[in-house]
Amino acid sequence: MKVLIVLTNTTHYGDTEDATGLWLGEATEFAAELQKHGISYDYVSPNGGYVPIDPRSMKYTNEEIMDFYNTTDFKQRALANSLPLEVVDPKNYDAIYFTGGHGVMWDFPNNDTLHKLALDIYKQGGYITSVCHGVAGLLNLQDDAGNYLITDKKITGFTTSEEILAGKKSVVPFLNEHVAKERGAHFQKRRPYSEFALQDGQFITGQNPFSVKAVAKLLLENFKN
């Protein structure tokens, strides 16, 4: 089994000076769970190469997150030299995982190359997974007939209430919950910033940064079957 972990290259909220990027724990906690169970993984980003970390995410770390962050493997393969989309062969992966951090709202939703990669993994029976803002990578995925993949699917992601509490509702380009419902998804949610993840077929999604391990565990359960 092998998983493709997708990271953002976006450094700022749109054209503002406000820094954003990858929410650190959403990559490290997920990869750490895979590592514990002997599942291999690669890191990819829309442009390849450098991946910025959202500075706010450094305030919400723990020993496990920081230990993984400080490994040479993570710093080199994820943060410094993430793979570009063009070199990735979807046939090598059993799942794709969209990490979050507000940056993904700019470089995940409209990237045709990224979408084709996810669709190819989906077509071969693989899982499409995300956490928090990573759901932005799912919103515009369409099958060959032009139908949105999330239509009639139960999914979750960073909610509008959480966006308001984060103080970012006025600067994000769209609201994940709103667009998901527009696409016909059955958007599920729990209390803001509480752990919540769910599965519907080949989709496994988590609501917020506190849901990373729950997403990983659901995926690992499927790998056992």
Rank of each mutant, 00 (worst) to 15 (best):
Y193A: 10
M66E: 00
L119K: 14
L119G: 03
A27K: 07
T99E: 06
I39D: 14
A118L: 10
I155P: 11
A136P: 03
T160W: 00
S57Y: 02
L79S: 03
G21N: 02
A80S: 15
P55G: 03
K169I: 15
D200Y: 08
T160E: 13
A31F: 05
Y69N: 09
L218Q: 12
T16V: 09
D42F: 01
I164Q: 12
V131G: 06
V3W: 10
E29P: 01
D143I: 08
L165F: 00
I155F: 03
K2T: 08
N111F: 13
A95D: 07
L219R: 08
D107K: 07
L175T: 15
V44W: 02
D15I: 02
G101D: 06
W106K: 10
L114T: 10
G206F: 00
V104Y: 02
H186I: 12
T156K: 09
G38R: 13
E33M: 14
R56L: 12
E162L: 00
T113R: 13
P52M: 09
N9V: 05
Y193P: 08
D73P: 07
E33R: 14
A197D: 01
Q76F: 08
P55W: 04
G134E: 06
E29Y: 00
F74L: 02
L83D: 04
Y13I: 09
T205S: 14
V44C: 01
G126C: 11
N92G: 02
L24C: 03
G134Q: 03
N62M: 08
A95T: 07
L119R: 12
G126A: 02
T156H: 00
T61G: 03
D94E: 10
F223A: 13
G38P: 09
L220Y: 07
T61P: 06
E182R: 11
N70M: 05
R183T: 04
N110P: 04
V212K: 05
S211C: 13
K224C: 01
K213W: 01
G101F: 06
I121W: 10
F74N: 05
V215E: 09
I150Y: 00
Y60V: 03
I39S: 12
L198I: 15
Q76W: 01
G21M: 00
G49C: 03
F187Y: 12
T28S: 06
D54A: 10
K91P: 05
V44A: 15
D15F: 04
S82Q: 04
A19Y: 01
P46M: 07
S40G: 14
H37F: 11
T156V: 02
M58I: 10
F98E: 05
I53E: 05
G184N: 15
E195K: 15
D143P: 09
